[in-house]
Design a protein around this nucleic acid. Sequence first.
DNA 1: GGCTCACATGCAAACGATTACATACGCGAC
DNA 2: GTCGCGTATGTAATCGTTTGCATGTGAGCC
Lengths: 337, 337
Amino acid sequence: MDRKIATIQDVARSAGVSTATVSRTLSKPSVVAKATREAVLTAVAETGYRVNATASNLRRQRTGSVIILLPNIANPFFSQILAGLSSVLTPAQYGMLIADTQFGPDPEERLQHYLTSGQADGLILLDGTLSPEALRTPARPPVVLACEWMGSALPSVRVENQRGAALAVGHLAKLGHRHIGHVTGPRGNVLTETRLEGFRSALSQLGLPMRDDWIIEGDFSMDSGASAGRAWLAMQDKPTALFLSSDEMATGFMGQVQRRGVQVPQDVSVVGFDNIEISQHLSPGLTTIRQPRTQIGVRAAELLLDMIAEGRIDGPSEVIEVEFITRGSSGPPPAAK
Amino acid sequence: MDRKIATIQDVARSAGVSTATVSRTLSKPSVVAKATREAVLTAVAETGYRVNATASNLRRQRTGSVIILLPNIANPFFSQILAGLSSVLTPAQYGMLIADTQFGPDPEERLQHYLTSGQADGLILLDGTLSPEALRTPARPPVVLACEWMGSALPSVRVENQRGAALAVGHLAKLGHRHIGHVTGPRGNVLTETRLEGFRSALSQLGLPMRDDWIIEGDFSMDSGASAGRAWLAMQDKPTALFLSSDEMATGFMGQVQRRGVQVPQDVSVVGFDNIEISQHLSPGLTTIRQPRTQIGVRAAELLLDMIAEGRIDGPSEVIEVEFITRGSSGPPPAAK
DNA sequence: GGCTCACATGCAAACGATTACATACGCGAC
DNA sequence: GTCGCGTATGTAATCGTTTGCATGTGAGCC
């Protein structure tokens, strides 16, 4: 009807009651008499009234949204976690405010900003490179870390990264490989270090050699996997199997060496980490460690909502299991060596 | 210092001025005397004051955020657009509220809700299956469509989908293919229909046969590409080349047929659409149509910000060019036919 | 009939900022 | 000395809800 949007005042006037009654009808219908309730609802329908979220939030001292701070929204790894988050937050009527640390200035500054700006009822942190120092802020909202984070006691959802790496090495060792290399993520990233550590300790436990020139630094991207492929091709003394710290790198690696005529797994075995969608569609399929990314998001969101509901800024942590998935990209080492 | 967060009142008291002066110091520093300004800034620093965005928004009748409505946040296609949006919105101090239509109930209802709830200063629509009917709401915020949308005059950012399909067909025809099939997206999706239409008209313009049993319905996913692969393998009379409406489907297709010993492009040529990251890392690399997804996001965000700034709910539309990229997955048809 | 009690509703004060308008001051011009 | 004007600041209304408290009404009980 109107050009302007109706306010609670308009509804109250139209229903012949006070704004308090309208508000109550909408939030706690049980306390208003049936006749009044119906009158109000009719008025709401007639005026096309919608509560103004900003005003409501101001009064209720909440915001109805949580901030997700992540390093790169275009990365499928994160977007799957986002999907998990969304599946919990949306039905709970929370908005997801996404902040990509790669745009805008100093990420630490951004984190600090969101913690103090009161723009959100909670924060989920997916960027493992930020320092936990910022979280010492007083009067901050609850935070859940959904990524490895060194020695932090904050509520978090973690994945068995170290065990995952050990599974990969164990699998290759069982197939008969004794020369196993590793392609890491970017140095400094906690995922990188944890998986590298898992790789190292598994090798030493199995009594296998750990050679520094078989450790190649990547950055989780397909491109860096392809670079690792070139590096491997150029090696004099090649490992017969590689464990790569992400499926994307494994994909890039396989593509690169296959284009140079190398056969997987006859000439080299490849194991990834993540089980991204493409892993099963490659030829051969990629042997990998599945980490349930959607699940990570779901649990992180649930943890955060619990904390918000209880008004606490601490809470439990949770570890999510990984699962080993065998596909065609791993096999026995080449006989001739 | 304090347990509670400081308000503008606290700052005013601490600086010995009124709240109006504090507010002015922060928003229009030029109108306050230098001495006062410094006193206020000191007080701000001491109290750790941050403006309460909710209160500010209520008063200023804005929200400082825009809503992005999309069908599936985990889809890399959308997350790349999101990255583009983020790169514009974040520096402009706008928050991105992401709403995934696959969660929660009726998507149309959701759209309607966001249009009227006043939770955002603008809306960007990435879901091509929603009906434009909902946009007839009075007093709604500006909207930009960042997807094809049938016959709508709303501000939008589109991609030359039809021309893209024509480029693919033209390329295959030039290589000598006369039997060309197509794997579509889900029926009803506008991208699907537009590309299919482009495919159809290109074939007829080149005088090539268009066979209904060579049109396979997919849903843009790798899985559906793999299904299409199985369907192709089972065909009596196979097309020698396929144009698939997404790179993901092309990836699934190639993986599937390769695992059954089919050689690409010797036995079948494959052309995709999108140029996702993996396309260049496959073996062989995937011939495809590049659509600059980041660019789509960037332009959509810019268009929306312009509209918000000018307080208009209409604005220009824009078409973004596609580019043909030749890689190894397409070649001449098999000689024996 | 007066008392209590429960229930339904209204009144009005928050929530924390922004901003139109009013006021105060100082200074130069007449 | 008064007037006028520009500059700097304060006062208070306002944005649209929510909610503690007060009020009103009628029923039930002694």
